[in-house]
């Protein structure tokens, strides 16, 4: 297990190094000069040069890459070209919205999907299964921004249980903040839960037809206990894979939902920065998201090994 972890860790570091290179150069290659964008079309060449020097754009590309990576390692993400504030601070503020939102949505989706998937698998072909499968079909099909707007219409405008948008801020207390994240989290979680429930169901159905499930029944376990004790853990591998992918998506992909609910999250930050050619912010946020995705994958890999002893030995 230790060797397995070590190996995963090494591959994590290599992935990070490679992706940082790719991100930096892809974004640098994209046309558009932040200095000229900031100063407008009529800027004097010497002013431009001065600003470039100030932003650190006048040194060779490889040196800028090293400065960028070296800075990130010590928590210095540079200064936004547009707002002239430290990028780390900007990301920090946004992360406090996006991360809780992603976790909230993930928790909701898991809490809905697991029981639904297990229930449907245990009653395969029955009315409960059909109902759940139809519901998930719908959940996958409905666009989440439309669903988000429906939520706003019903719960914010008609029932007035929640506010229609904006973020209350953590300073106003945990519950106020969580409350303002609830509708967005539900909107994000719904399609994810639908997918996850379907994966859970099909993974369990695969496992239920395995020989060892019959062995479990022959031992005297009831169908339900056999499912819980022998089925669930064996069905976890595909479910964990989807769960890992979903978390990554929720962290970065909430951009539309953030727009609908006017949430100051990472998605909106990256969107605004791209429009403003605030390259350093784009690079840093992308890198952060990649980092998150890679770390989540690492965690999923460890979870695989925890679930399945056969993976611990395979190199």
């Amino acid at each position: 297990m230790l060797r397995y972890t070590l190996k995963r860790l090494i591959s994590l570091i290599i992935s990070l190094a490679v992706t940082s290179l790719v991100i930096f150069f892809v974004i640098e290659i994209a046309p558009g000069d932040p200095a000229s964008l900031m100063l407008g079309v009529n800027a004097q060449p010497d002013t431009l040069a001065a600003l470039r020097a100030e932003l650190g754009l006048d040194v060779p590309k490889w040196q800028r890459y090293l400065n960028w990576v070296g800075g990130m390692l010590v928590g210095d993400f540079g200064t936004s070209y547009q707002y002239r504030t430290p990028v780390a601070e900007m990301i920090g503020n946004r992360l406090w919205v996006s991360l809780p939102l992603a976790l909230y949505a993930l928790a909701l989706s898991t809490l809905i999907a697991f029981p639904a998937g297990i229930f449907a698998a245990a009653r395969r072909g029955g009315p409960g299964d059909v109902a759940i499968m139809s519901a998930t079909q719908l959940g996958v099909a409905i666009p989440n921004f439309w669903f988000a707007m429906m939520l706003v219409l019903i719960f914010a405008i008609n029932l007035r249980w929640f506010s229609a948008g904006g973020f209350a801020g953590w300073d106003n207390g945990f519950f106020a903040a969580m409350k303002s994240l609830t509708l967005p989290a539900i909107a994000l979680a719904m399609p994810q839960a639908a997918i996850l429930a379907r994966v859970m169901r099909s993974a369990l159905l695969d496992v239920l037809s395995e020989d060892y499930m019959r062995t479990a029944r022959a031992k005297g376990l009831s169908a339900r206990r056999a499912l819980w004790r022998h089925g669930l853990r064996n069905a976890m591998i595909p479910v964990l894979t989807i769960l890992g992918l979903q978390f990554s998506f929720l962290l970065a992909g909430g951009i539309i939902i953030e727009q609908v609910f006017f949430l100051p999250g990472l998605g909106r930050l990256i969107f605004q920065s791209i429009s403003a050619r605030d390259l350093i912010v784009v690079e840093s946020v992308t890198m952060l998201l990649v980092f998150a995705v890679i770390v989540v994958n690492f965690a999923v890999d460890l979870a695989y090994a925890a679930v399945d002893p056969r993976l611990r030995q395979r190199s």
Binding site: Y212, T215, A218, N234, V307, P309
Partner: peptide, 16 residues
């Protein structure tokens, strides 16, 4: 009543 099956390679739960 105890029962033994044909396929020993798959009759046991691989994660226990």
């Amino acid at each position: 009543i105890g029962m033994v099956f044909q396929e020993p390679m798959t009759a046991l739960n691989p994660v226990q």
